[in-house]
Amino acid sequence: MDATTTATDTVQQGDSHEHGLSDAMAIKIALILAAMTALEVSTYYVDFGAFFLPVLIILMIVKFFTVVSYFMHLKFEHQMFKLLFYTGLGLALFVYFVALATFKFFN
């Protein structure tokens, strides 16, 4: 919902620095992140059974991309920036998963 307003804002102001992440928006996102962290920590107190691992991993990934997309506003950035960062991230995931797999880490 944000992306469109951002786009127009940018055009109107002719300034690439405004990425449309208003302070209020940022606070909202931070609250969501905080809630997710609370949920994560709760796994320490409450027994989640079989959901334990998936819940933690999914929350981790969601938090990761929320910060990258909004706080680091990569979502609104030029295609090239995404390419640069996600190439690094993708390569890291690839090589280290393969390396750990050869150690039979996932068996």
Binding site: M80, F81, L84, F85, Y86, T87, G88, L89, L91, A92, L93, V95, Y96, A99, L100, F103, F105
Partner: peptide
């Protein structure tokens, strides 16, 4: 742009450290 490249590179740095930790 340079910062994004640097961070992409840092992904591989921390990836390596995290993998080492996971292994050990």
């Amino acid at each position: 742009m340079a910062m994004w490249l640097f961070l992409g590179s840092e992904c591989l740095l921390f990836g390596g450290l995290i993998s080492t930790y996971m292994l050990y």
